[in-house]
Design a protein around this nucleic acid. Structure first.
Lengths: 386, 386
DNA sequence: TTGATTGCCGAAACCGGTTTCGGAGCGAAC
DNA sequence: GTTCGCTCCGAAACCGGTTTCGGCAATCAA
């Protein structure tokens, strides 16, 4: 006698009620008086099935509630009708309130094709490739969405080498000769948004405008900084390296960079942040310096996180439609796995400006601003500010 | 000639490099000089394989990088080694910053067993059952995690009827005779936390303590309200129905309920909220009434969302370890699909108090508080408060 | 010595679909 | 009247695993 190694003998209780058993292809074929191969080809739209039979098959299939087992088809077709995404759970700015919107979009995009979405998480960069590898090996998905693309992205190299389809949320290869040679991607043009942020401030009359970028390992950080530079150029403002800071991903890091900018001898009267989170960090610094945001200093963000509307004053920012992004990415990825050329699957969307109260005409010149800050901090040194 | 209905003829480019082809069971068997049935049974721990052979098979399997195709096994075993969760994307409070932690936990819990996690979203309550249905029909998962359980939960009925394994994040059937008869669940004891919140306020000297619950369709809302009542009882305080509000899921709804409580003739000097989001809504109301949070009125939340530490004053709240919750749920669900009895798979965790500055000894009596509010609002009527 | 167990493994069926291949039936062309 | 080609469908192989069943050799009991 052999023993099955599984646990207690409750397996039977897991079987579905026999009365509500699923209908399989053979039964459907019997019911139709056709062979199962004919039925299968009819359902899959083969051309050697007469139109009338196809219609008949489809209608009774629907009537009988027939649904092919996806893994049963996968064994022959090699496609599981699923896309995957692996999230890096070790990131400092991982508490992304938009994840749900993004996932909702991706799921809907997949559902529209009757595909599903599997996710996984990686604890580190190294773990990432292992996780991807497992998913590929076990063939849990036919393609991958790669969020937060980096300038030099290991995931891309890995999947390319394996010839596994993928699509980027973002672009990659900043600064390379042919940055996006044959990958497909969807992205929101952060550079356009940041450029117009600078123009907006310049239009308000700001002459010294600072920029706080994100981690330079991410491609978007470079693109947005370039948008800032373009914005300066378009407004005829000089580039001052002193006003360009990088590496702020979290609120705290945003605060550090905001402080550095405001403590300059000749501080900016307006600051554009690459992300809302970093921008929110500046709020505490401004409070600390006795600065009124929107008057003494103008702040602009990017992302459109919900919190940006609840701070006071409301943060002017550029809102990204994460749900749509997820949806587009899913659709484009599926089309790629179906044979469309990756190079033909690229799309660039735009963020939309949410005008709130964190920016406006400068009330002070940079000199006056500097004086106000030093006076305030001196006056408060050792004071009680609980 | 028959035509395959798929798109352009690039299929070939999708095939993996033939040199890096996956090794399949037959090849492994050939390499070992064994039959593939023996190898399969060895890998699956059957008892009729000698220990030495088993070891040999396992080691060379590892050496050759053999990995069974999960859908190929599924066709015979009926198990795809995946758990699923479907998120309701239509919820007003869907921007949950903890989703990522939760998913990370669930994914890790699944990975530990070499399972994966598939997700999907539903746009409404009705859509929910369709989405679940599709996943079940196509057998995309072996079991489901059901988050945010409701008092009368359609998902539970649906999956129970189909005899599909599932586990609740939360409990259900509040008020029924045998509320949790044979479902398995993991939950955090919100009632315990809220009870101690009341005790904490009472310990500070508060005598009138309000409660703002969440949507009563959710089970947790009732449990937390009960915790509030128990807390009052433990502190020897009377129950005043006037002080109990419900239905606040969003920040704005929290604001509405906070306003209602504070505008009472005999307002509470401390308010316990069922969720952080609702608690944050009270901040704007307090500002509007010229009330200093933590002094004039004490506020307590529950959830431990990141934002709670960035508001001023920091919100005292109870932090829930979402990642651990996800991990436990995944493990328990997998064990259930392997045959363990659902009734034996239940676990109750505790939230941990994060003491911050939104609560403390009452500076005013309820009467003084009421007077302060009316004075302030009258004084500011029509005034400029931009 | 013989018959019955036991330990270990191979052959073959099986899971539920997809795809290949061949052939019946029919109309048109020679 | 063949022959050809076209439309449409069925039989059977196939995908990559798992599970059943039976059999051989060695061991044990009688």
């Amino acid at each position: 006698m052999r023993t099955n190694p599984s646990l207690p003998k409750r397996e039977s209780s897991l079987r579905r009620d026999p009365s509500s058993r699923r209908v399989k292809l053979d039964e459907l074929a019997d019911h139709l008086g056709l062979s199962k191969s004919t039925v299968s080809r009819a359902l899959n739209g083969y051309s050697d099935i007469s139109e009338t039979t196809r219609k008949r098959v489809e209608s009774t299939a629907r009537k009988m509630g027939y649904r092919p087992l996806s893994h049963a088809q996968a064994i022959r077709t090699g496609k599981v009708r699923a896309i995957a995404m692996v999230i890096n759970s070790g990131e400092p700015d991982r508490h992304n309130p938009f994840l749900q919107d993004f996932l909702a979009g991706a799921c809907e995009g997949a559902s529209a094709f009757d595909w599903t979405m599997t996710i996984s998480t990686a604890k580190s960069e190294k773990d990432m490739l292992n996780v991807l590898g497992r998913l590929v090996e076990e063939r849990k998905a036919d393609g991958f969405i790669l969020p937060r693309t980096e300038v030099d992205d290991a995931r891309i190299k890995y999947l390319s080498a394996l010839n596994v389809p993928f699509i980027l949320y973002g672009r990659t290869g900043y600064g390379q000769a042919d940055p996006y040679d044959d990958t497909s991607w969807f992205d929101i043009s952060g550079e356009t948004a940041i450029r117009s942020a600078v123009s907006r401030l310049s239009g308000f009359g700001h002459r010294r405008i600072g920029f706080v970028g994100s981690d330079p390992k991410f491609n978007y950080s470079h693109l947005r900084r370039d948008g800032y530079l373009e914005g300066l150029k378009a407004s005829g403002l000089p580039i001052d390296p002193e006003l360009i800071r990088e590496g702020a991903r979290t609120r705290d890091e945003g605060a550090v960079q905001a402080r550095a900018l405001l403590e300059l001898e000749n501080p900016p009267t307006g600051i554009v942040f690459a992300t809302d989170l970093a921008a929110l960090g500046s709020y505490t610094v401004c409070a600390e310096f006795g600065l009124q945001i929107g008057k003494d200093v103008s702040i602009l963000g990017y992302d459109g996180i919900p919190e940006s509307q609840y701070v006071s004053p409301g943060l002017t920012t550029f809102s990204v439609d994460s749900q749509r992004a997820g949806e587009r990415l899913a659709e484009m990825l599926i089309r790629q796995t179906r044979g469309e050329a990756p190079e033909s699957l690229r799309e660039l969307g735009e963020a939309v400006l949410l005008e709130r109260n964190s920016d406006g005409p400068p009330r002070l010149t940079p000199e006056e601003l500097a004086r106000k800050i030093t006076q305030y901090t001196n006056g408060n040194r050792g004071g009680d500010r609980s």
